[in-house]
Design a protein around this nucleic acid. Sequence first.
DNA 1: AAAACTCTTTGATGTAGATCAACCAGCATG
DNA 2: CATGCTGGTTGATCTACATCAAAGAGTTTT
Lengths: 250, 250
Amino acid sequence: MTRVTPKIQAAGHDCTACPIRHRAVCARCEADELQVLEQIKYYRSFEAGQTVVWAGDTMDFVASVVTGIATLSQTMEDGRRQMVGLLLPSDFAGRPGRATSAYDVTAATDLVMCCFRRKPFESLMLSTPHIGQRLLEMTLDELDAAREWMLLLGRKTAREKIASLLCIIARRDASLQLSQTHGELRFDLPLTREAMSEYLGLTLETVSRQMSSLRREGLILTEGKRHIIIPDFDRLLEETGDDSDGGFLV
Amino acid sequence: MTRVTPKIQAAGHDCTACPIRHRAVCARCEADELQVLEQIKYYRSFEAGQTVVWAGDTMDFVASVVTGIATLSQTMEDGRRQMVGLLLPSDFAGRPGRATSAYDVTAATDLVMCCFRRKPFESLMLSTPHIGQRLLEMTLDELDAAREWMLLLGRKTAREKIASLLCIIARRDASLQLSQTHGELRFDLPLTREAMSEYLGLTLETVSRQMSSLRREGLILTEGKRHIIIPDFDRLLEETGDDSDGGFLV
DNA sequence: AAAACTCTTTGATGTAGATCAACCAGCATG
DNA sequence: CATGCTGGTTGATCTACATCAAAGAGTTTT
């Protein structure tokens, strides 16, 4: 389990060079506002599989994902688990005004977060409207995504669920690389079959079977277990059950 | 279909007498800020079953639910529907900065909304931080509720889903009446079996069967089709699958 | 007071996905 | 190079819920 510690931790204190500068909670901040943020921020790294916080534990910071992927999940007493959020670079974790985490937060891949102690961040929100405004916008986006996910969980078939997840990840990956979402797409699946099943409200066996079925039909190709190639994105899109046009807001 | 038009429409321009004054987006506003809001607000009434807006249609206002219940739902091309939100008095509908509704908004019961034209509301948000702050708080609450719902949709059994829904409605009803959530509770179900099924990701037959089963076991009693009596709230709570203590944030 | 609605309940049957159980591939470890 | 470990695949069987179908209860309409 030897993993390279992401470089940014050692380096970057300079917000202007930050890769998520224009999309994170600080996106609207002016130079002087950024300087205040730089005073209270610190980076934390996690290895794939590590837990950032457990549901119910105190969480005295809020944070932006800088690189990697984190998941939010809930667990029932008897162990049933449901993932309720997938945090990608620039997404925000934690809730101003709340001391304990409502969810298990876990590093799905190696992860770097830009953290702010909660109290200073909260007072900053009062004095710096740009932060609150941006956070509102991001929270509204999250709410839309959560509601889209409710449709998936409540009404889609296993096959549609898998296709939807693959399309979402492919799309977000493409948007990070600034490539087009047409024709062939390739990316690494950042989730295990088990994590996928927790996100989709399925068992991992069903996930595996549906992946195999999509592979058999040529809708996806795989290299190793995790590298996915989508030869024709639009064709996979048709399997999601969504409107051909609009669909997910991502 | 003769229904009494809610009185507030004729009467109330006075925010200070508003029943949702202390819980809605305007909760944190000072007297002078309320005066500005009063300038741009207007009431709209809808009868049970009426559509407020269709998904995709332009929605040039945002609004607070004053009395009654509204639902948000999504529809797939082939007609499968999933409810993604239940708006109770004081809840907020619409999204500042977005011109079209992402969901079908429907009056589940007779409904009165306090509306603000979107543009003036947006500029008010910039000049009146109290509104944006409150909206952020409400949106974060909605997001928590949506995530709780994802757990229900993804992992709960039909029986647990029904018990959860009844508990949530009973709880919110009790909080409006300022009564305790222990021992016997009674309330009117504001949803048809079909609406319940759309919310829970079930068919209406399954909803009906599970309601009958809870009734047979004495967990609920019914008077007519819609009036529900919960003789022992804590006993019903045990059927939800949630932690006995915390559970829903509502 | 019969007809037509809407909402609900109940029964018979079918099926998607869960559950239980092997087994395989890739890797790290003694 | 056997050993165990983690993550993934595939098969056989079971079951919770969907689907199809009919009928009851409470309305409004004629």
